[in-house]
Write a protein that binds this DNA or RNA. Structure first.
Lengths: 112, 112
DNA sequence: CAAACACTTAAGCACATACTTGACTATCCA
DNA sequence: TGGATAGTCAAGTATGTGCTTAAGTGTTTG
């Protein structure tokens, strides 16, 4: 299938859980099976599957089943969307601060 | 007060809601009062206060009350932490892909 | 001083999340 | 073929989230 026009809601939601971030962290070092993702997590396999579903719903991760193993991988372009949203708000704020700084400096200049 | 050593959990959690992102978006254009944040949102003031509390718990926003108005502002350094977490996973994945590409290219070179 | 303003608190409710266990289904391998 | 492997489905439960309304508390302002 491999569709996906993911929402920021689901993307950030997916990243808001330590188990899911641990899975992403593992996947950032390369593809992995479900049980590989599960190994370091102190919870049942079904629980891990549910986390995986949340990551897929957020578009952060894609997976494909071959034989009896499901292999998971990161979707970096979606990760990048979340990154960009944050970056845009942050830099807008910081540009505003800079302009304010310039304004205050100019005003100071004027009065001296 | 102004303490804060925020967790990724609470940061991403805070960003995972459209009302809260709308508040951040508004704040990225400069400080605002609670009712200013509430104006475009179709919900009661108490609901907005609860969203604000989530944003503060995540460290994304700080606020201070002067007289009867509470003024809110973005904490860009915290926003930057979330950004960095994503960026690190994404670039790690992409570096891996690059190395893999190099490897395949070299292998191809060898066999021709 | 009284009314309007800008929150703030508390309580309650519907729905969503993060698990669990138990049972089941396909591969794969000896 | 039969057992181990890797994953999946279905329920059930406890806790968390996102609202609401109703009733406050301080702060201006006419």
């Amino acid at each position: 299938m491999l569709n996906q026009q993911p929402s920021l809601d689901l993307m950030f939601q997916a990243l808001a859980d330590p188990a899911r971030r641990s899975m992403v962290e593992r996947l950032s070092r390369g593809p992995a099976s479900v049980s590989e993702l599960a190994r370091p997590l102190d919870m049942s396999l079904p629980a891990v599957m549910q986390h995986l579903a949340v990551l897929e719903a957020g578009g952060i991760v894609a997976s494909e089943k071959v034989g009896r193993v499901r292999t998971c991988a990161i979707r970096p372009e979606v990760l990048s969307l979340a990154e960009q949203w944050i970056n845009q708000r942050r830099t807008q704020w910081e540009r505003r601060l800079d302009r304010l700084g310039d304004f205050l400096a100019a005003e100071d200049e004027e009065t001296t």
